[in-house]
Amino acid sequence: METKLAPDAWQAIGLTTLALLVLAAVVFDLRQRRIPNTLVLLALGAGLIINLIGPQLWLRGGGLLTLYPSALGLKGAALGALTGLAVFLPFYLMRAMGAGDVKLMAGIGAFVGPAAAINVALFILVTGGVLAVVRMVWVRKTQLVLFNVVTALSQLVPGTAASFDPATQSADRMPYALAMAGGLLAYGAWIFSGHAPLVNF
């Protein structure tokens, strides 16, 4: 199912929709420290629809985040959602990220496809790291944060008695939707300024 939309118009609609959904997630995360499942489902559904109705000009669609936009189709959008989920799932299992953040990444993946989802995730992780350092210095909890990081990493070493529970020992929780918005914006700027994706397949 394709519309008569021109690629540029389709890309503008898709990126605007994605930006509004991520902005809504930021607002919820800042105010309530959570991202509602309704918003995540809306992002997943919108990503699938955008890629289902858009112009599929190439055998392998380029997606939204490219200089040559082309819809991914239902399969590409679904693979993007699964990739987004898979990339951030380990962080949730280590209790370093909330479930809402992981599900939001799946929603972003549904818009941008599997390859772009990996690239966006890398930019989000870098952005998150920078924001975490800035926040750590701002709230003057550098020593506690560094201690928590060392303790959390120590859990990965077999035979270590170190135990860290982010729910009770966290020095401060940064609304991670901010990092997701920043990383998405940074990757968009990277691509639309003419740079090649870091990961491409």
Rank of each mutant, 00 (worst) to 15 (best):
V112M: 13
A25H: 11
T151V: 00
A43H: 03
I49K: 06
I53G: 10
A78S: 05
A43N: 10
A24S: 14
A9L: 15
L64Q: 06
A43M: 11
V120T: 10
F192M: 02
V120F: 12
V87D: 05
G73Q: 04
G182F: 06
A189N: 01
A121H: 12
A121P: 04
F192S: 01
M136F: 03
G183K: 09
F123P: 05
F111A: 06
V134R: 03
L156D: 10
A162Q: 02
R33C: 00
M1G: 05
I118S: 12
L198W: 01
L198R: 00
G183T: 01
I13W: 13
V150G: 00
I13S: 12
Y68S: 07
A106E: 09
G107F: 06
P7W: 14
V112N: 10
G128R: 06
L72M: 14
P69S: 08
L89A: 07
H195V: 00
P36Q: 08
K4T: 13
D29M: 11
S70D: 06
Q143V: 01
L20Y: 13
S154Y: 00
Y187I: 01
P158R: 02
L93F: 14
I118V: 15
V137G: 14
A121R: 14
D29K: 06
I53H: 04
L93T: 09
V26M: 04
L184Y: 07
L30R: 13
V149Q: 03
G182S: 09
L89W: 14
I13Q: 14
Q169W: 00
R140Q: 07
S170T: 05
G47N: 05
R173L: 05
T151W: 00
V134C: 07
N119A: 08
A171C: 12
P197K: 03
G14F: 09
D165C: 08
L178A: 06
L52F: 10
N119L: 10
G194R: 05
Q155A: 03
R173E: 10
L131I: 12
Y176T: 01
L44E: 14
L144C: 03
L59Y: 15
Q56R: 15
W138I: 07
M105L: 15
G47K: 07
A19V: 08
Q32N: 08
R60C: 13
V139N: 08
